[in-house]
Design a protein around this nucleic acid. Structure first.
Length: 191
DNA sequence: TACGTGATCACG
DNA sequence: GTGATCACGTAA
């Protein structure tokens, strides 16, 4: 079952980021179905300095200010596309960064996109999983209940660890918030 | 640890 | 227009 809009429009992005662990992320671009279990996420909220929306709306972060249930994809370091799930209500610009997946379906397509012969660490990082699943800027601001991109309930359950977020030293004391969530003892975590 | 890579945004 | 910056990944 695709996750309902009400799921994404919840007000607590931290709770949603934690709950997304174990859900299934699916893409269906160019008739290639690929999916994975979400095993690592990070929460970002407009109230703190780590978030792109902290200083207000710009052309890039505009999707974050829409009601939850759409994607926010942007190019990082000129190379990597990063995929976020927009949550909360209109003008309450929260989002969850998907940092790692455990591959589930379409590994062949993923390996081809990654130009590798091995499944090892195929989707273990925010820049890698977008490439493996074919997520580009064309998927920015797209509905998360579309025919090409969606999330489903998972059957997974297990322990979840919380740690500080990666790569946001510029956020000062907000970099210390324990808003990164990981499936405990899962081999598909980033780095 | 070092650096490629190019869009983005705050300046004038 | 310009320049500093960046929610990464790989190699060394």
């Amino acid at each position: 079952m695709k996750l309902p809009l009400t799921y994404y429009r919840g007000e607590n992005v931290i709770k949603i980021a934690k709950d997304l662990i174990g859900k299934r992320l699916v893409t269906h671009f160019n008739k290639q179905l690929t999916s994975g279990v979400v095993v690592e996420t990070e929460a970002y909220s407009f109230v703190e300095k780590g978030c792109h929306a902290y200083k207000g709306m710009t052309p890039r972060n505009a999707p974050m200010f829409e009601p939850g249930g759409i994607s926010y994809v942007y190019l990082c370091y000129g190379i990597h596309h990063l995929f976020n799930i927009v949550t909360n209500g209109k003008h309450r610009a929260d989002a969850v960064l998907i940092r790692a997946l455990q591959p589930l379906e379409g590994e062949k397509h993923m390996m081809k996109r990654m130009q590798t012969q091995t499944i090892k660490r195929l989707t273990s990082g925010p820049g890698k999983l977008t490439r493996a699943l074919g997520i580009t800027l064309a998927a920015n601001a797209m509905s998360l209940r579309s025919a090409q991109l969606w999330l489903e309930d998972g059957l997974w359950s297990g322990d979840i660890e919380a740690k500080t977020r990666i790569g946001i030293d510029y956020a000062g004391e907000d970099a210390l918030l324990p808003w990164r969530f990981m499936a405990k003892d899962n081999g598909w975590i980033s780095k």
